[in-house]
Design a protein around this nucleic acid. Sequence first.
RNA 1: GGGCUGGUAGCUCAGUUGGCAGAGCAGCGGACUUUUAAUCCGAAGGUCGUGGGUUCGAGACCCACCCGGCCCA
Length: 433
Amino acid sequence: MAGRLLSLRRMGRTSFAKLRDGSGEVQLFLNQQALGKDVYQGALDVLDVGDFVSAGGPLFRTRTGEPSVRVERLQVAAKALRPLPEKWHGLQDPELRFRQRYLDILTNDSVRRRFEARTAIVSALRRVLDSHGFLEVETPTLQPVYGGGAAEPFVTSYAALNRDYYLRIADELYLKRLLVAGYERVYEVCKNFRNEGIDSSHCPEFTMLECYQAFGDLADMRELAQRLVATAAEAVHGTTRVQFDGGALDFTPPWRRLTYRDALLASAGLDLEADASASALHEAARSNGVTVDPSWPRAKLLDELMKTLVEPSLVEPTVLERYPAETSPLAKRCPDDPRYIERFEVFVNGMELANAYTELNDPIEQRARMEEQASARHGADATPVDEDFLLALEHGMPPAGGLGLGVDRLVMALSGTSNIREVILFPQLRDRS
RNA sequence: GGGCUGGUAGCUCAGUUGGCAGAGCAGCGGACUUUUAAUCCGAAGGUCGUGGGUUCGAGACCCACCCGGCCCA
């Protein structure tokens, strides 16, 4: 067997070592009589904690019952030149944990398990979608026009094409092209890039699951979102009632449902159906102590009110639904009331976890709303019109439900962590000067 | 951007009123034939984040900056 030496207790003519490989840990029992004096002493001279070694010999139990290998053959497979962090406390300094994640994973069991859980979660998401007949696809990371959201992109230079390109802020518009192509159920798990702030729930490079279902509606997407998250919870915890040090969350479907209007009415005392004018929104912000900019359009005001007053209170999984039309240009309007769109978002721990629409597939209305948004939004939020996407829509996109799920945030919610960096293997930090 | 907080040995951390820079683990030398954070003895290990300032004297006090963490915007 081969693995990494995690500890070494030298006790004279007998020594004990702890060896870890991918399947677990085992104790090595080294004895001078069994190995011969030269081999035994030579091994102790050269071995350091942190080395990779291969060892062979029969399994047995020591006096204290510890399963051990009575080492007969021993070889250093790779030498460690630097010592492992402190064996009892592990690596604690958050800066070093992020900068040298390999040491964090190597010495902190809970961190190692958390990243294994992340992989199990992504596998569970794929398993659910695969079993529901969704086709996993890959779409461009480098895009000539960014779209599918409102965010500042990373700009890069595409030498062979001699023009600027953008790292995707979303893959939505490409997945919809595949609906045009005739695939009825598609999904992609990919990195998106948004050149904006970093905080405990935002990382400029993050992982998203997006899926689209032709002829699906919002109810289908709600069922799917619940199925995805519940299955992921079971994959990690064996249950949808998840407990961790800081508390507990119940992901058992069906989740609580709340309309956007009722949420604002309860938290801000603002009734969108009584008065949804910009001045009413400003008044609501002022009376609730929310700082806003007089130049903001209604969509941004609404977003700010929701972020400040409503979202922090949504701790248990909650489906927030019936969004005002101006909050997205990509969703279909509610047939019973054109002031609203068929959209919901899922919140957990005050954090947006998922976003779903009945997708807008009318090329004429889509063009109008994209052009409206391109001109109405100011400065950094301006989203260019993707003519190539509109051309695709003009060839006919089936009615469809679409769902986006923040994978990093799902891992946070299922692992009881409150900082997104704790679920990203190698988060970016400033250079140490 | 603002507030709070941290940066001392490879790691985990102490450092009192401004008065010789400390411990544990790891590493090094030694003892020990069943340990479990082994134990015991010995020696060694420092750009106290960086740069200024105050002072007879600064890890500590003051200023600026760098890199984190938490909270707020």
